[in-house]
């Protein structure tokens, strides 16, 4: 087990190194002028050149690459051209909001996916099955920014059930920042007003994001449920005279959910992706918007740092999932 973990960690480092090399060269290949964009369209060329010199952007690309890699080794992702702060500091500010959104989305997609999957399996080939499958597949079939706007229109504007954009209502006093995750901080500080308000705000974006990841979870649940329901021990349980419901919830479900665990890692990755669009629609101050804003002005360090960080999170999530799986299923250990 220890060697397996070590090997995986080494590979992860290698992958992250590769990611940083790729992203460095992609952003530097773009024929653009971030400094010129930041200074505005009116600035004369001399000023643009001076700024470039100040920021070291007039050095040859290899020298810049060397600086960048050296920085990463020291845990330094550089200074964002736009915010003028260390990229690590920016990430620390924005990531918790994204993480919170992703966690809620995972909860929603797993809950929804498992429920739909079970319904599909138990009422296989009936209209319940068809409905729940169509419903879950519909989630991956619509552009998230469009679903987001429409849900906002319905639940906020027309029905008035849920608040509009942002993380909190304007006049709710935010909790003291501890982890940066608003809901968690509200609980830690006992700020229930902020907790309720934050919960009301996170529902729509998390639902939009989670819904888009529901289909694959519903699918896996359905398949493995069907698989488990045919196994001998279920027949035994039924033969013992246990009711259908007890069999499904007590016996079948527990065994059927193991494959779902593996899917969470991949889902996490796709949620981080979806966050890029969802956060813009819902005015969510997260890492996705940070990266989009960085891309719009080509803030090199911010793009590179943000991407590298997301790659790191993705790799970590998958590592954790694989390890969990290895613990659950000893055959995986090599």
């Amino acid at each position: 087990m220890g060697r397996y973990v070590l090997r995986r960690l080494l590979l992860m480092v290698l992958v992250l190194f590769g990611v940083s090399v790729i992203v460095f060269f992609i952003v530097h290949v773009i024929p653009a002028d971030p400094v010129g964009a930041l200074l505005g369209g009116n600035a004369p060329p001399q000023l643009v050149d001076q700024m470039k010199h100040q920021l070291g952007l007039d050095k040859p690309i290899w020298a810049q690459f060397g600086d960048y890699m050296l920085g990463i080794l020291h845990g330094n992702l550089g200074i964002s051209l736009k915010s003028n702060r260390p990229v690590t500091q920016d990430i620390a500010e924005y990531f918790p909001a994204t993480l919170e959104l992703a966690i809620f989305s995972i909860i929603i997609s797993v809950a929804l996916g498992v429920v739909l999957g079970i319904l599909s399996a138990v009422y296989r080939n009936s209209w319940v099955d068809h409905f729940s499958r169509i419903f879950s597949i519909l989630g991956v079939s619509m552009p998230v920014f469009w679903t987001g706007l429409i849900l906002l229109l319905i639940f906020y504007y027309i029905l008035g059930w849920l608040p509009g954009t942002g993380q909190l209502s304007l006049f709710t006093i935010p909790p003291h920042r501890i982890t940066g995750m608003l809901l968690l901080d509200s609980i830690l500080t006992g700020n229930w007003e902020a907790f309720r308000d934050g919960l009301a705000h996170i529902i729509l974006p998390a639902a939009v994001l989670g819904y888009s990841a529901t289909a694959s979870i519903a699918r896996i649940t359905r398949a493995s449920m069907l698989d488990v329901l045919r196994q001998d021990f279920i027949r035994t349980a039924k033969a013992k005279g246990l009711s259908g419901r007890v069999v499904i919830y007590r016996h079948a479900l527990k065994n059927a959910l193991i494959p779902v665990v593996t899917l969470i890692g991949l889902t996490f990755g796709s949620l981080l992706e979806g966050a890029v669009l969802t956060e813009t629609i819902f005015g969510w101050p997260g890492l996705g918007r940070y990266i989009v804003n960085a891309l719009l002005v080509l803030d090199y360090p911010a793009i590179m740092g943000g991407t590298l960080f997301i790659a790191l999170m993705y790799s970590l999530a998958n590592l954790i999932v694989d390890l969990t799986y290895a613990v659950l299923d000893p055959r995986m250990r090599i």
């Binding site: 706007l149 906002l152 906020y156 504007y157 509009g164 942002g166 629609i281 005015g283």
Partner: peptide, 15 residues
């Protein structure tokens, strides 16, 4: 308030 989408701004204004 930072509201990037113009449609959102419209909705919030009307509300």
């Amino acid at each position: 308030r930072d509201i990037p989408e113009s449609t959102d701004q419209l909705l919030l204004l009307k509300k």
